[in-house]
Simulated assay, not measured.
Amino acid sequence: MRLITPAVRYGLPLLLTIVGVYLLETRADRWGGLGVMLVGTAVIVLMLNVLFRISIKSNRERSLEEQAREFYDRHGHWPDGTS
């Protein structure tokens, strides 16, 4: 699992970009459109990765905030000691 995730996260977009640029440079007359689509797909995969990571971070921050609010409700002060 530790090898598959980075391979999909970074290796797949890299492979798509390399193949897309290759098609654009060497076979632009017939396969240029496919090359453009592959490069665009690589960008989309990278952007989905970024958005997914932002979502995970946001969920973690929400969970910590919820725990702090529950602590405040039980004890009457914030967990870090501030009022």
Rank of each mutant, 00 (worst) to 15 (best):
S63Y: 11
L34A: 11
R27H: 06
V50Y: 12
F52R: 09
L16E: 03
V19P: 00
A7L: 13
R2N: 11
F52K: 06
N49D: 14
N49E: 12
T26N: 13
S83M: 09
G11P: 01
L3N: 12
V19I: 12
D73W: 04
R53M: 14
V39N: 02
L3E: 12
N49A: 06
E25P: 02
W31F: 07
M47A: 11
S63A: 08
G11K: 02
D73R: 14
Y22M: 12
M1D: 09
L23F: 05
F71S: 01
M37R: 11
P79G: 03
R62D: 08
I4G: 00
L3H: 10
P13A: 01
V43G: 08
R60A: 14
L48G: 06
Y22P: 00
T82V: 06
V50T: 11
L51S: 12
G81D: 04
E65V: 10
E25I: 13
P13L: 00
L12F: 08
L16N: 03
V8D: 03
E25Y: 10
V45D: 01
M1K: 05
L34E: 06
R62F: 11
Y10F: 15
L51N: 11
Q67V: 14
S63I: 10
R69D: 01
R60K: 10
R69I: 06
V43H: 04
V36Q: 03
Y72M: 05
R62K: 15
G11M: 01
E61I: 13
V19E: 00
N49K: 04
R53N: 11
E70T: 10
M1R: 12
R27E: 11
A7Y: 10
I56V: 14
A68L: 00
R60T: 14
G33K: 00
E65G: 09
L24P: 02
I4E: 04
P13I: 00
I54Q: 09
V39I: 12
T82R: 09
G40F: 05
R30H: 06
D73S: 07
E66Y: 13
S63K: 13
L64N: 11
V45L: 02
R2T: 09
Y22F: 15
L34Y: 04
G40V: 02
E66S: 13
I18N: 03
G20I: 00
G11S: 02
V36N: 03
W78S: 01
E65I: 14
G20M: 00
L24Y: 05
K57L: 05
M47Q: 07
V8W: 07
L3S: 12
P79I: 00
G33N: 04
G32C: 01
H77I: 05
R30T: 14
E66G: 10
S58C: 11
G76T: 03
R2C: 07
R2Y: 07
V8A: 06
A42V: 03
V50N: 06
T5N: 08
